[in-house]
Design a protein around this nucleic acid. Structure first.
Lengths: 151, 151
DNA sequence: CCTGAAAGTGCGTAGAT
DNA sequence: ATCTACGCACTTTCAGG
């Protein structure tokens, strides 16, 4: 699954504005509208593009408090166990297993500090969780990226 | 900047698939197509919706290596200084100032370990950076969210 | 290139303040 | 009485074949 320069430029254009017309993107990268469409279709079929979504201001949706939680797990906890456990929290927007002392790094959005604390306590109370360590986001500096699947 | 239930449902529908037609969304939430469009326009004008973007599989774009870098800054470094400095790296996809020992937490995507190491060294060499501490992502468990502005 | 569908716009109306 | 949001009808633009 390789992407050439043209594909990258198309993806880049869509990343900035997924509502731009194929013709518009085509005029930028030097292709006709149908040519762009065919490439986008191919990228979707290959899984390089997994969907289209909206960029949202968390505060406008009432998610005023953001933080990262490191999770230290008990022995014999599989990544799948962690994923299943965390997926039940709508406040968890991303999670990955990581190198280093902690087992997983989890990004959490909450409506306020009280809400964040409650989520943190719930996560810390999960059977597979030994302990947690968290930092709060003071101010977001950059957000550029969107990846993965909904759910 | 208030969002009612209807707005939330529209945003949720767009978050799952930003390419759905207004008529389609309208039939789900009980509005006509123009009514949905006007709400989306209003949400964009208010800044609740900051744009439309594409969901991408990092690996398909050649970003096989992901990591989080904690940055410890020299005194008298403003968040804006950090933002400006980091925005020059295409590999940096998100960055926030945080509580705790570190000053900022930065998410980095690189093509491979060599690339990641090079970026890490470059960031560590920035004048405002005292030292860094990084963890590598082993496997992504969840990705749900998209926010913020292109940059 | 051609057709159908969707976006976008003007207007009249109804309900809320 | 005014403001806001709706639906309908219409034109323009785009998607998809």
């Amino acid at each position: 699954m390789r992407l050439n320069k043209l594909d990258e430029r198309i993806v880049h254009a869509l990343a900035e504005d997924a509502r731009r017309s194929f013709a518009d993107i085509g005029s930028e990268v030097g292709l006709s509208a149908p040519a762009v469409k065919r490439r986008v279709d191919r990228l979707r079929a290959e899984g390089a593009i997994t969907g289209f979504t909206v960029r949202v201001d968390p505060a406008a949706l009432g998610w005023e408090t953001e933080g990262f939680v490191e999770i230290y797990c008990r022995h014999k906890t599989s990544p799948e166990d962690i994923r299943r456990g965390l997926s039940r929290y709508p406040e968890v927007v991303s999670a990955s297993t990581v190198t280093g002392d902690a087992d997983a790094l989890v990004q959490v959005f909450a409506s306020d500090m009280r809400h964040f604390e409650r989520v943190l306590e719930q996560i810390a109370g999960e059977p597979y969780v030994e302990r947690t360590k968290s930092v709060l986001v003071l101010s977001p500096l950059l957000r550029r990226f969107s990846s993965g699947a909904p759910g």
